Amino acid sequence: MTEKSVATIRYGRLAPCLEVSDIQAAHHFYCSVLGFQKVFENGLPVGFMVLKKDDAELHLSWKRNHQASTTNVAHLFVDDVAALYQHCQQAGVRIIRSLAGKDYGQDAFVFADPDGNRIDVGQRRI
């Protein structure tokens, strides 16, 4: 086998994996509130799930005693952050940081899922 440098290796998608204490509640939240669809599950009872919407993919992994981090665990880029922010507010999603323009060229907000996992949502300003 020929050795390649890391610079020549093409990377594919990278999907965050969130630990959740109730995988069915997480599935319901991400699908009914945020519009994801389940494309894969594994285990009996289900211990792993893959959700997808457009180019975004999210993996859920059941962990009985999950404790959420106090930092963002994933970043989601969207094409209309203001509309998603308003939708999340109307759906009663817990907002950690309100929608604001950031000095690094994005408009962004942070929400928490039912397990307290913090997701940073942003849109690049043109």
Rank of each mutant, 00 (worst) to 15 (best):
M1I: 12
T2W: 06
T2I: 02
E3D: 06
V6D: 13
I9R: 05
A15Y: 12
C17N: 13
E19Y: 02
V20H: 04
I23E: 01
H28Q: 08
H28Y: 00
F29E: 03
F29Y: 13
V33E: 00
G35F: 11
Q37G: 03
V39E: 12
N42Q: 09
F48E: 08
V50F: 11
V50D: 15
K52W: 11
K52A: 05
D54E: 10
D55H: 08
A56C: 14
A56D: 13
E57H: 03
H59D: 12
L60C: 10
W62C: 03
W62N: 06
K63C: 01
K63T: 06
R64M: 03
A68W: 13
A68N: 07
S69E: 15
T71C: 04
N72M: 06
N72A: 14
A74S: 15
H75M: 00
H75K: 02
F77D: 11
V78K: 05
V81L: 06
A82N: 05
A82W: 14
L84P: 03
Y85I: 12
Q86A: 08
Q86W: 04
Q89M: 15
A91S: 11
G92W: 14
G92D: 15
V93H: 10
V93T: 12
R94D: 04
I96V: 14
S98Y: 01
S98Q: 05
S98H: 02
L99E: 13
A100I: 06
Q106S: 11
D107Q: 08
V110T: 12
F111C: 04
A112Y: 03
G116Q: 06
G116Y: 10
N117H: 01
D120R: 03
V121K: 00
R124G: 05
R125W: 00
R125E: 04
I126K: 07
